[in-house]
């Protein structure tokens, strides 16, 4: 079945990359293992956004809410109750998905910019509650020293756990996009009126897509909580949502792997640039504006375009040679 979905050479490439990632902890310094874990978590977050943004054409402007809700669910369950850790980790994505259902239910009645702005407002309402409810969420201090099982507290343990979860999630998202539901979603993105006309319940499909994206965003949040063992309100602040949007743009949002690349670039740049300058966000802003002007399809989109042009190249070239000589 897999062969029908993926070209063999992509499968091989993915396998090699995965093998490499499995071996990295044996040789790399702890800092790099940590940064790679951050990249995995961020990549999952960006991909979950791309599910609705790139494939659904939905203006999900406040995706970080689901990330934050997932992370806070873990933190609250583990610090306020005596439930075991795995229940907390499982609960995170479902609470995030439920949040997605509530926010989405309001938002799907609107489209495009109205949708996005309504989502920012509803998401900010969640943020305000987390930010202000000191007794429960710790307010702007956040929650720190979340207890985790021993094996998850080492860098290597967290690395492998995160890698495994991210790979499974990415695989699921890939299957989802290739499924009839994914095809419908893309059809809705390209022409909602026509979809409505042939009897597809557009709102219904959008809502399901938002819930699924919120679920995976929640998984990313859970992974963040396991990696950092602390949570803070910034996780569901709207600025982070726009940063994730930037990652999708940077990588290319009509491509499946683009957001991974975008997340990797942003995290790596932040790590490097913040070593040399206090003005890292200015660097990001300048990159973003350059990108919008010169590379609107993103890095991955650009590469794909080039590859496509190269594959097509022989034919027109031959014609040119013929007419030239």
């Amino acid at each position: 079945m897999l062969k029908a979905l993926v070209e063999p050479r992509w499968l091989v490439a993915t396998g090699i990359i995965l093998l490499g990632l499995l071996l990295i902890p044996f040789g790399a310094p702890l800092f790099y293992i940590y940064i790679l874990s951050v990249i995995f978590v961020t990549a999952l977050l960006a991909m979950s956004l791309n599910l609705v943004l790139g494939y659904g054409g939905i203006y999900q402007f406040h995706h970080a809410v689901f990330y934050g809700v997932g992370a806070y669910t873990v933190a609250l369950i583990l610090t306020r109750t005596s439930l075991p850790w795995w229940i907390a980790l499982l609960a995170g994505p479902f609470v995030a998905a439920a949040t997605g259902l509530i926010i989405g239910w309001f938002c799907v009645r609107l489209t495009k910019l109205y949708f996005g702005m309504l989502q920012i407002s509803l998401g900010s309402l969640v943020w305000i509650i987390v930010y202000r409810w000191y007794d429960v969420t710790g307010g702007d201090n956040g929650i720190h020293d979340i207890p985790m099982p021993e094996w998850l507290t080492t860098f290597q343990g967290a690395y492998y756990f995160i890698l495994a979860v991210v790979v499974v999630c990415v695989g699921l998202m890939f299957l989802l996009i290739k499924s009839p539901f994914g095809a419908t979603l893309q059809a809705i993105r390209d022409n909602p009126q026509r979809c409505e006309a042939i009897g597809i319940n557009v709102r219904h499909h959008k809502l399901i897509a938002i819930v699924i994206a919120a679920f995976f965003g929640g998984v990313a949040g859970v992974l963040f909580a396991t990696l950092e063992r602390s949570v803070f309100p910034g996780l569901l602040f709207w600025v982070l949502s726009l940063e994730i949007l930037v990652m999708c743009l940077l990588g290319g949002w009509f491509t499946f792997a683009g957001p991974i690349l975008g997340a990797a670039i942003v995290v790596a740049l932040r790590t490097v640039a913040s070593r040399y300058t206090d003005y890292w966000t200015m660097v990001l802003g300048i990159i973003l504006i350059l990108l919008i002007f010169f590379l609107p399809e993103g890095v991955m989109g650009f590469i794909q375009e080039r590859v496509a042009a190269k594959n097509k190249a022989p034919h027109p070239q031959r014609v040119e040679e013929g007419s030239g000589s």
Binding site: K112, G116, L242, L245, D278, G285, I289, I292
Partner: peptide, 27 residues
Amino acid sequence: HLYQREHLMLILFTFGLMLILNDLVKL
């Protein structure tokens, strides 16, 4: 130069502006 672009690009453009302006204020 960007008015022909879609809203998403415009909002991201102004976000980029925000990042730059805020750091300029800090500077």
